[in-house]
């Protein structure tokens, strides 16, 4: 978000940017809001706040730049400022602690939780959704941005205000944690060697 440069859009232009550049991302944005708050009422409020904010600050959006990344960044910031505090989730892992965990030897220890593709094919219910939601919000976020929304590492770094190296290591850790969860489900479902 280059807030230094401010455009001066006419009312008509504003409306057209809103409809053509912002509205097409509303389903992805809702999903992001829902996965962050884990509550559909909070997700609705967060989505509405974000879209109204985006409209209010539309002059700092530059036409031709990535509207989706711009919107995702506003949503993530609104979540941190307005929702994270009152979130129903248990208290967050200390940020510093999380970062040092990525860099510790533990990352290598369980590099590939043993999980088979066949076991995944039997997860036809909401197992993966529950597994994703159970991850710490920072890990959940990178999986959503990368795997669901297809953002590039560089875009993710901008959305999250973190270095690219951190994006990579966080993704790495997040994927291993998700696999651990999935392999727990697979074991419960009766795959001995899941």
């Amino acid at each position: 978000m280059e807030e230094v440069i401010r455009e001066q859009y006419s009312e008509r232009e504003k409306q057209s940017i809103f409809n053509q550049e912002f509205m097409p991302h509303i389903n992805s944005m809702y999903n992001f809001a829902y996965r962050l708050t884990l509550d559909s009422d909070d997700a609705k409020d967060l989505l509405q706040d974000t879209y109204l904010k985006a409209f209010r600050f539309i002059d700092s959006f530059q036409k031709g730049t990535n509207a989706k990344a711009w919107l995702f960044r506003i949503l993530k910031n609104s979540f941190i400022n307005d929702y994270r505090k009152k979130s129903k989730e248990p208290s967050k892992v200390d940020y510093q602690e999380v970062e040092s965990y990525y860099n510790s030897e533990d990352v290598d220890r369980q590099i590939t939780p043993d999980l088979r593709v066949e076991a995944l094919q039997d997860m036809i219910g909401d197992e993966i959704s529950v597994a994703l939601n159970s991850l710490d919000v920072d890990f959940r976020t990178v999986i959503i941005l990368c795997d669901l929304e297809g953002f590039k590492y560089e875009e993710m770094a901008k959305i999250l205000d973190i270095p690219i190296g951190t994006v990579r290591s966080r993704l790495h850790r997040a994927r291993n944690l998700l696999k651990e969860k999935l392999s727990e489900y697979a074991k419960k479902m009766g795959y001995k060697n899941a």
């Binding site: 809702y30 593709v117 909401d126 994703l132 999986i143 669901l148 998700l178 999935l182």
Partner: peptide
């Protein structure tokens, strides 16, 4: 395995915005 997980995520973890909400945002 990574490819399969990603496919499963895409198939199972994308919630759409409720239509009334979309309309209400437009109206506002």
């Amino acid at each position: 395995l990574e490819v399969a997980i990603r496919e499963l995520l895409k198939a199972k973890c994308s919630q759409h915005a409720p239509q009334e909400l979309v309309e209400s945002i437009r109206k506002k």
